[in-house]
């Protein structure tokens, strides 16, 4: 089976103590390390709020959930905030199915963390 290697792109913006990582492409076991590196780098800056935007991902599996849960664990431990953008597609449906949407600070598309 010939399939192009999965590609993950991470765009980073920061403003007023908030760092936002916008992920696009595919987030799976192959690209998870890349995403984790980006998240770790952002966490190292100790932003008051870290936003992970998963809404534009074309594919995400349980690895995406793992990324969010780990980031949430770090934020909880260090008394900072983690927020996610899930959009309204497959990513959102997966988080819903896992029963964790209510346990995350979920932002809408253009919504800024309060």
């Amino acid at each position: 089976m010939s399939e192009d290697a999965a590609v993950l792109r991470v765009a980073r913006t920061s403003q007023d103590g908030r760092v936002e990582l916008a992920l696009s492409g595919e987030l799976d076991n192959d690209t998870l390390p890349t995403a984790q590196d980006e998240v770790s780098a952002a966490e190292a800056e100790a932003p008051a709020v870290l936003v992970l935007d998963l809404a534009a991902l074309e594919y995400v599996d349980s690895c995406g959930v793992r990324l969010v849960l780990l980031a949430q664990g770090v934020a909880d431990d260090e008394n900072r905030r983690l927020a996610v953008r899930l959009g309204h597609g497959q990513t959102r449906r997966m988080f819903d199915m896992l029963g964790i949407t209510d346990r995350l600070e979920v932002l809408d598309r253009e919504e800024s963390p309060s």
Binding site: V65, L69, L98, G99, I100, R103
Partner: peptide, 13 residues
Amino acid sequence: VPGTLVGVYPDPE
């Protein structure tokens, strides 16, 4: 049937 994944939160629904 809704419910929370296991192994992460101490109080799953």
